[in-house]
């Protein structure tokens, strides 16, 4: 069987391939937890597991989905551990975002991130993979191991909730499009 080692030939080449994915994994991890330290840990864990499990991958095209599936498992393991230790507090994530050093340039970014942090874990997972990674619904379903209908409904609820939080309204009806400053 053609394994990942056959595909990339050497572990050095594999490491290069994985490094190129680092930024994308980090960005998605950050959108889930909004904590740079934890994001970095999650990506490091993901890449270490990927290298250890390299023999399980037999298709180069599946590398991205495979890596994001490992990242998802790392993230869920982390959430599970947190819930076992202390009651999980979604508000903590929101505070982490809004407490970050701020200036005018970062105001909009922080406000959107705060809104995303208010979504449920499940909604954030779907939203990030679709909007940041540009994955198709079927790819997301595979990565998260959930039915495609669930992907669609979680995405729909996530965007609806974001629209409400950010007060994104429509120009056609001549209403205020958004008052993001209020979120702080």
């Amino acid at each position: 069987m053609k394994t990942m080692w056959n595909i990339f030939g050497t572990s050095r080449l594999l490491q290069k391939q994985l490094e190129q994915r680092w930024r994308r994994l980090y960005r998605v991890a950050y959108s889930w937890c909004h904590d740079p330290d934890l994001s970095s840990d999650l990506v490091q864990d993901t890449l270490q597991k990927a290298i250890r499990k390299g023999g399980q991958l037999n298709n180069e095209q599946a590398l991205d989905a495979w890596l994001f599936a490992i990242l998802t498992n790392c993230w869920r393991d982390h959430c599970r551990r947190q819930k076992e230790m202390v009651p999980f507090d979604e508000q903590r994530i929101v505070d982490t975002v809004t407490d970050a050093p701020d200036d005018d340039r970062m105001m909009v970014v922080n406000q959107v991130r705060s809104a995303v942090a208010r979504l449920s874990e499940e909604q954030r997972e779907v939203l990030s993979l679709v909007d940041l990674e540009g994955m198709s619904y079927s790819e997301v379903a595979k990565v998260l191991d959930i039915p495609m209908g669930t992907v669609m409904s979680r995405l729909c609820r996530a965007r609806r909730q974001l629209k409400d939080i950010l007060e994104v309204k429509d120009k056609e009806t001549n209403k205020t499009i958004a008052n993001l400053r209020r979120i702080k």
Binding site: V112, R113, V116, D131, L132, K163, E172
Partner: peptide, 19 residues
């Protein structure tokens, strides 16, 4: 348009996550 704006805002908000 509203949904598109929400999608764009999410994409842009994570273009440059803090390191």
């Amino acid at each position: 348009c509203t949904l598109r704006q929400v999608k764009e805002m999410v994409t842009l908000a994570y273009n440059n996550p803090p390191l």
